[in-house]
């Protein structure tokens, strides 16, 4: 992630440059959208959640103390939003209606006309995502941040406000739990 660029954009946005905010959104939207999708598993919900996250960024940018830490701050904010939305949706039974066979799981499954290999790849991808989604929230978070968002241990440590050693041990446990869930497929 081009941190320097992000810091400059934050600075410009704070000085009133609205285009800088648009560029910040462009810079991070893919990662935040996929993070949201990892939580809510449904495209419309993920889009709405991502929009809410950036609305909060817009409104609370003055609370960011160090512009160079924008990435970590954004992820912290995004994680809070994702946790809250996940809890809210779970209470409403949103996830109970979704299964591995549900085409509305946000995995962009193709129709039956897809060639066999593509279908198999999509199916594998869907299984893995489902397995990640079924992890405990704390395990899911570290997997999403490290293995899907490809953040460093330092960044995850900062975002989750945990010592790096704790992050590593949590990640190891989460990966082992994921392996056990995918055992029959491996």
């Amino acid at each position: 992630m081009p941190y320097q660029e992000a810091a400059e954009l934050v600075r410009a946005f704070r000085q009133g440059d609205q285009q800088a905010f648009n560029r910040l959104v462009s810079l991070y939207q893919r990662k935040i959208y996929n993070l949201a999708l990892g939580y809510v598993k449904q495209e419309d919900e993920a889009k709405d959640l991502t929009q809410d996250i950036f609305v909060t960024v817009f409104r609370q940018i003055d609370k960011l103390k160090d512009e160079s830490k924008f990435g970590a701050w954004l992820y912290q904010l995004a994680m809070n939003h994702c946790r809250n939305r996940y809890q809210k949706l779970r209470r409403r039974g949103f996830f109970s209606n979704q299964s591995l066979d549900d085409p509305e799981t946000g995995l962009n499954l193709s129709s039956g006309a897809t060639p066999e290999k593509d279908y198999e790849r999509e199916n594998t991808s869907r299984l893995v995502r489902e397995a990640i989604a079924s992890l405990a929230p704390a395990e899911k978070e570290v997997i999403l941040l490290r293995d899907l968002q490809e953040l460093s241990y330092e960044e995850i440590s900062e975002i989750l406000d945990l010592p790096m050693g704790t992050v590593k041990s949590k990640l190891n446990r989460a990966r082992l739990a994921l392996k056990n869930r995918l055992k029959h497929y491996l």
Partner: peptide, 16 residues
């Protein structure tokens, strides 16, 4: 390997 092979999805065009 499976987890790292997962592709990210492009954000919706009407996000901004």
């Amino acid at each position: 390997s499976l987890v790292h092979s997962l592709e990210t999805f492009p954000p919706p065009a009407d996000l901004l």
